[in-house]
Deep mutational scan, measured.
Amino acid sequence: GTEDLKEEAKKALKKGDKERAKRALKKAGLSEDQIKKFIKEVL
């Protein structure tokens, strides 16, 4: 589900894998702006 994808994105970001995080967030249905915001909040 969406929460799982967001968790996956957080883990990817902590490993420095932004591309993987972006893919997971796109799958979760987030827009580009939401993805940028999510990444900023996590990092």
Rank of each mutant, 00 (worst) to 15 (best):
E41Y: 07
D4V: 11
L13F: 03
K18G: 10
K14D: 06
G16K: 03
A21N: 00
K14V: 10
I39T: 02
E41L: 09
I39E: 05
L30N: 00
G1K: 13
A28K: 02
G16Q: 03
K27D: 12
K6I: 15
K40N: 14
K22L: 15
Q34M: 09
K11S: 10
K11M: 09
E3M: 09
A24E: 07
R23S: 12
E41D: 13
R23H: 08
D33Q: 09
L30D: 00
I39P: 03
D33P: 06
R20T: 14
R20A: 15
E8R: 07
Q34H: 04
K18M: 15
L43Y: 09
A24M: 15
K27F: 05
R23F: 04
K6V: 14
A9P: 01
E3F: 05
Q34G: 05
E19H: 06
A9S: 02
E32C: 08
L13D: 01
K40V: 11
K6Y: 15
E7T: 08
L13G: 00
A12Q: 06
K40R: 10
G1I: 13
K27E: 14
K36T: 11
D4P: 07
L25E: 00
K15L: 14
E19A: 10
K37I: 14
G16F: 05
L43F: 09
E32P: 11
T2H: 12
R20M: 12
T2S: 11
K15V: 14
L13N: 01
A28Y: 05
L25G: 00
S31W: 01
K40E: 15
L13E: 01
E3A: 11
E19C: 07
L30R: 00
R23L: 07
A9N: 00
K11P: 00
D17M: 06
A12M: 09
K18A: 12
L43Q: 07
L5I: 05
G16I: 01
K27C: 06
A12W: 13
Q34S: 05
D4A: 14
I39V: 06
A12F: 11
E19F: 04
E7W: 07
K15P: 01
R23Q: 14
E3I: 11
K10R: 15
L13K: 01
